[in-house]
């Protein structure tokens, strides 16, 4: 756009042939609005409103899901998510410290781990966890489905969180470690008391986003084969919609996810903004 105006207008103030850039922009914007209106009108005309109300906004069917939607499904989703997050947090921190270690084999191990678990789909991890019994016949992961879910979600999120923590630790100024060491703190003590608390503050926004994506990935727990009491949101919605042959419950579970993800996303953006202002 600006390239055009430069070509056409050797004297910017004088009158010109054709349309000015500002006029062109106004016309282009008008066309875009018109197009949007047309698309909405066409979709509205094509849709069967009666059927939509019957199938997606069926309040009678939606009511059938209560209170289990919240007391069972949402509760389980939160449990799976938080337990996976806690495991991922701890393991991720250890991996980040290994990644930054002066001991080369630690660095290699951590790098290999991170590459593998960031490179695999969560679905595949859950399928493998389901077959873990074949490799370790005498070992059961404690907690049953809950333990398996925490493991799957934790193993994968640890890889992402390790990279976040590493970036956070490296963002803490070098003088902080020097000051701590010059006070006689051993390396590990300095990391725990001085460096890591500052690093966690720095990575709070990406960690919040990680929590959101874990919440969504917790829907894959259904691969593990869950009982009615262990069901989480996505499977709950799917089961209900089969029972009533009506997709309204899927829409309802979708809204329930958004009830958590949208505020969390807002929190992450607030933390980010606060950090930007604080530095």
């Amino acid at each position: 756009m600006s390239a055009v105006s430069e070509q056409e207008a050797p004297s910017p103030a004088g009158p010109r042939k054709g349309l000015s850039p500002r006029r062109k922009q106004r016309i282009s914007r008008g066309v875009q609005y018109a197009l949007l209106v047309v698309v909405v009108v066409v979709l509205a005309a094509l849709a069967d409103w009666g059927a939509i109300r019957q199938s997606f906004l069926n309040l009678d069917v939606a009511r059938e899901g209560l209170p289990d939607l919240f007391t069972v499904a949402l509760r389980n989703t939160v449990i799976y998510t938080l337990s996976g997050f806690v495991l991922g947090f701890v393991l991720g921190l250890v991996l980040a410290l290994m990644r930054l270690s002066t001991v080369a084999p630690y660095r290699w191990l951590s790098t290999i781990y991170i590459e593998i678990f960031r490179g695999l789909p969560m679905l595949l991890i859950f399928l493998m966890i389901g077959s873990l019994r074949l490799a370790f016949p005498n070992f059961d992961i404690p907690g049953g489905v809950y333990g398996n879910a925490a493991l799957g979600l934790g193993l994968v999120s640890a890889a992402y969180m390790a990279e976040n923590f590493r970036a956070g630790i490296q963002a803490v100024p070098k003088g902080q470690l020097e000051a701590a060491r010059s006070l006689g703190m051993p390396h590990m003590r300095a990391m725990v008391s001085i460096i890591i608390p500052q690093a966690i503050r720095i990575v709070l926004p990406p960690l919040t986003n990680q929590l959101v994506s874990l919440l969504k990935d917790s829907s894959l727990v259904l691969i593990l084969g869950v009982t009615a009491a262990q069901v989480e949101l996505a499977k709950f919605g799917n089961d209900q919609s089969s029972t009533f042959a009506n997709p309204t419950p899927i829409l309802v579970t979708g809204l329930t996810y958004l009830l958590i993800t949208i505020p969390l996303g807002y929190v992450a953006r607030r933390l980010e903004a606060r950090q930007g202002a604080g530095r």
Binding site: P173, G175, Q176, E178, A179, A180, R181, S182, L183, G184, I194, Q198
Partner: peptide, 15 residues
């Protein structure tokens, strides 16, 4: 190092 105090140009207080 416990017996040697150090003061830095950039202070390096723990913020």
């Amino acid at each position: 190092r416990r017996r040697i105090g150090m003061v830095f140009q950039q202070f390096n207080l723990f913020p």
